[in-house]
Computed example of a mutant assay.
Amino acid sequence: MYYSTSTGNTETVAGYIAEYAGISDMEDIGDATDSDVTGSDGLIIGAPTWHTGADEQRSGTSWDDWLYDTLPNLDLTGKKVAIFGMGDQQSYGDNYCDAAGELYDLFTAKGAKVFGMTSQDGYDHTESKAVKDGKFCGLMCDEDNQYDMSDDRAKAWVAQLKDEGFM
């Protein structure tokens, strides 16, 4: 599992996911080697949205450089990827979890196959670049306004990933 965080919220949700998925290795994407990423059977990746409204480098974390400097040099054809994103629906409802959409766009452009699309039901946002064909491109969490729902959402999402054959 690779993530990066600004305030610690992404790491918190990564911890929930790791617990339910039985993952012991969570790492900041800035510390990952190319062979770590390409050598994995599947990747669970997560980012916060910090640069709201931006066309690129939306997370304000080490993902920003990694996505544009490292990812273009990797072959991820057929790689299983599951995405989680963090956002604030109340303060940034027009850009909710946009960085997750950036992960989706750039990883699929490199040939990755995304698992774990989820419903927008139960969320209170206006727009999101993380919405693909009417669904979120993975697990979206709001530790600012719906922190009490993140653990259950992570548990359900991991069960969904298992049902989809991701793990």
Rank of each mutant, 00 (worst) to 15 (best):
A109Y: 01
G8Q: 05
Q90M: 13
M140R: 01
E102H: 08
Y16G: 10
M167G: 10
N95Y: 15
E164G: 02
K155N: 13
S119Q: 09
I29P: 04
L74A: 09
F107D: 11
D98Y: 08
T10F: 08
P48G: 05
T7N: 08
V114S: 03
G15Y: 03
K79Y: 08
L67H: 08
F136L: 06
N73M: 09
E19S: 15
I29H: 05
D142M: 13
M167R: 11
I44Q: 11
Y147T: 08
K162H: 06
D121Y: 07
K113P: 01
A159G: 03
D163N: 14
T70Y: 04
D69N: 13
A100N: 10
D124P: 00
P72G: 13
Y147L: 03
Y16K: 04
D36R: 12
Q90F: 11
E143A: 13
M149D: 14
D31P: 00
A47V: 07
Q57G: 03
D124W: 01
G53E: 06
P72W: 13
G165M: 00
T10P: 03
G87V: 00
G53W: 07
N145D: 10
A154F: 08
S62V: 07
T118S: 15
L103Q: 03
S91T: 11
R58D: 11
G111Y: 09
S150D: 15
S35V: 12
A109H: 00
G39M: 05
G85S: 14
G111T: 06
T61H: 02
K110E: 12
A130W: 07
M117A: 15
S6E: 14
E19M: 11
F136N: 00
E27D: 05
D148W: 11
G53T: 04
Y104A: 01
D105R: 11
T38M: 06
L67F: 09
T118Y: 10
D28Q: 08
Y104N: 12
S24E: 14
T126E: 15
I23D: 11
S119I: 04
C97K: 03
K110P: 03
V114R: 08
D28Y: 09
Y3G: 06
I17C: 09
D55P: 01
D142H: 09
M86K: 02
T12S: 12
A18C: 12
D133L: 02
S6R: 13
S24I: 05
Y2H: 05
V13A: 09
W50E: 02
T5N: 02
Y123S: 11
W63K: 01
G42M: 05
D124F: 08
S128C: 06
D36H: 06
K132I: 15
K135T: 08
A100E: 12
A112L: 01
T77P: 02
K132Q: 14
T118H: 13
L71W: 01
G93M: 10
K135Q: 15
M1R: 03
A156I: 03
V158E: 04
A14S: 14
T52A: 14
A130T: 10
